[in-house]
């Protein structure tokens, strides 16, 4: 029982390490594909952008809107207990959203929505041998399938993240006003946001947006074993891209804290 547990942890770690290096090689090939475009794929990037946006707009609106309300509620509740001074809620909330919460929560939602979609799509192409057929005609699957999704996801994560910030702040303001009588003038104060905060937030969005298609594309391309394989690949894509987002978010936050945000 116990040794079984350790065996499964060990297998997990080994699998993670192996997957990490393979995903890293795919990331390398993707970057090369971006800077040395072999495929004329501008239309494909636009198509993928539309797919990502279309799939996620409503989803992001609903989830981030609800989260904005919840977070403001929790913060106000706590402040009421301690100081009762609600004047700082708006500015600090907006600032926290910009550099911390919106990037990670948007990216987690997109990892679920977009990552699963990419893995299912590329995974079913792998098991039906379409990827082999592409390679037969000399097409690199990374160039042809992952690079357009990589570019599209980076752009759309940035766009959706900015959009989500607006939604979250509006929802938060609404909640603060209705439940805690915080005036809109007091809430909408943007001076607290430094360039460092903005830089950290935008960097996170771009990096997360790029990581999701690479991790899920890797999961899709390494699909084996028919129909069950596609399900497994989708599962792995959701979990691996979410975990990647969390770890990257941590790393960027730490770097941001020690550099651009240290003085504030």
């Amino acid at each position: 029982m116990i040794s079984n547990f350790f065996a499964s942890v060990g297998a997990f770690v080994l699998g993670m390490v192996e997957a990490f290096f393979q995903a890293l090689s795919i990331a390398g090939r993707t970057f090369r594909g971006v800077f040395h475009p072999k495929e004329r794929a501008r239309g494909e990037v636009l198509h993928q952008m539309y797919q990502i946006g279309n799939r996620s707009l409503l989803f992001v609106t609903v989830t981030l809107g609800a989260l904005g309300m919840v977070l403001v509620f929790q913060v106000c509740l706590q402040i009421n207990k301690i100081t009762g001074d609600q004047s700082q809620v708006g500015p600090e909330f907006i600032r926290g959203m910009v550099h911390a919460f919106v990037p990670i929560l948007t990216a987690m939602m997109l990892a679920t929505r977009v990552g699963a979609g990419i893995a299912a799509e590329i995974g079913s192409m792998t098991v039906t041998e379409q990827v082999d057929a592409l390679r037969m005609t000399g097409v690199d699957p990374v160039d042809y399938l992952i690079v357009p999704r990589f570019l599209a996801s980076m752009i759309m994560t940035l766009v959706l993240g900015i959009y989500a910030t607006v939604i979250v702040v509006l929802a938060g303001a609404l909640m603060a006003h209705t439940a805690f009588d915080v005036n809109y003038n007091v809430f909408f104060v943007f001076e607290k946001i430094t360039w460092g905060d903005l830089g950290v937030g935008l960097t996170k969005l771009v990096v997360h947006g790029g990581a999701i298609p690479i991790v899920s594309g890797y999961c899709g391309l390494s699909t084996t074993g028919g129909s069950e394989g596609v399900g497994t690949a989708t599962t792995r894509a959701v979990i691996n891209s979410s975990l990647t987002v969390i770890i990257l978010d941590f790393v960027i936050s730490a770097i941001g804290l020690m550099t651009v945000q240290s003085g504030t």
């Binding site: 989803f59 939602m109 679920t112 929505r113 299912a120 079913s124 098991v127 028919g226 596609v230 989708t234």
Partner: peptide, 18 residues
Amino acid sequence: GAVGVGRAVNNAVVAAAL
């Protein structure tokens, strides 16, 4: 069939997140 399983997984995680 097979494609349906992939789509169902996708829908399930999205619905769960919502």
